[in-house]
């Protein structure tokens, strides 16, 4: 168990170190997020939506911005290994689950960093007031994890195919659609302060994320080795 964690951390640390030296994934994620945020804020702003629709629409818009940013950069971790031909070495040296774990950790941290910057900006720019901030953050955190799990396995698949950039979005959308629906409902409920509805949405997000995690852990070795 400790060995497994140590090896996973080695993959994660390597990815972080490479990423900090080039910043390809970080930059494309951040740029995409900032651009969409600016567009949304410019066209809609804090007063563009009727009061009654605010919680729902602002929740939906927030997740759309996060989703697009995720599509722009979260496939890098795997695609880069294939493009620079470092994947075969990793395949020879490491256990498949260790690779999956390391990449999952990397994607989670990347997305969490992005959201830590993006969400406060969004709240300020859109004049969003949240009734239950604790639950709001919990929904965001659960969403971050579930998004990272799903995009990690899709990125692993896409890296083994051609025309990767387009394929990443095409394959991700169907798998992420139910998740985004739950997250938008949960976010809306947290903004409106309806705790039971937040709990219902969180349960759905956690179970979907859990199912995805288990399925990915089983299927990743197939994706990685074929």
């Amino acid at each position: 168990m400790w060995r497994f964690l140590g090896e996973t951390m080695a993959v994660f640390a390597k990815d972080m170190r490479c990423e900090f030296r080039t910043r390809v994934a970080f930059n494309s994620l951040a740029l995409f997020a900032v651009t969409t945020l600016a567009a949304v804020s410019y066209t809609i702003g804090p007063y563009g939506i009727a009061e009654a629709d605010r919680p729902y629409l602002l929740g939906a818009l927030l997740w759309i911005v996060v989703f697009f940013a995720a599509m722009a950069g979260l496939d890098r971790s795997f695609v880069k290994e294939e493009e620079t031909h470092t994947a075969p070495l990793l395949r020879l040296a490491a256990r498949p689950l260790v690779v999956w774990g390391g990449k999952l950790l990397f994607n989670t941290v990347t997305l969490a960093l992005l959201m830590a910057i993006l969400v406060p900006l969004y709240v300020v720019l859109m004049g969003l007031s949240v009734r239950t901030p604790g639950w709001f953050i919990l929904v965001l955190a659960a969403g971050c994890l579930a998004l990272a799990v799903t995009t990690t396995i899709v990125a692993a698949i896409v890296a083994r195919a051609m025309s990767r950039g387009a394929l990443f979005a095409v394959l991700s959308v169907p798998l992420l659609l139910p998740l985004l629906v739950f997250l938008i409902q949960g976010t809306r409920a947290a903004i409106e302060g309806r705790v039971p509805d937040v709990l219902a949405a969180l349960r759905a997000v956690v179970s979907l994320g859990g199912v995805m995690t288990v399925a990915s852990a089983f299927l990743f070795p197939v994706v990685w080795h074929d």
């Binding site: 140590g6 390597k14 170190r17 490479c18 620079t84 031909h85 490491a94």
Partner: peptide, 24 residues
């Protein structure tokens, strides 16, 4: 092999260290 590339962003030592760690 030519098909097995090393990490270009890392130094020689860092590459070897990573290989060692990931192999446990």
């Amino acid at each position: 092999a030519p098909a097995l590339a090393l990490y270009e962003e890392l130094t020689a030592m860092e590459n070897l260290e990573f290989c060692a760690r990931v192999r446990g």
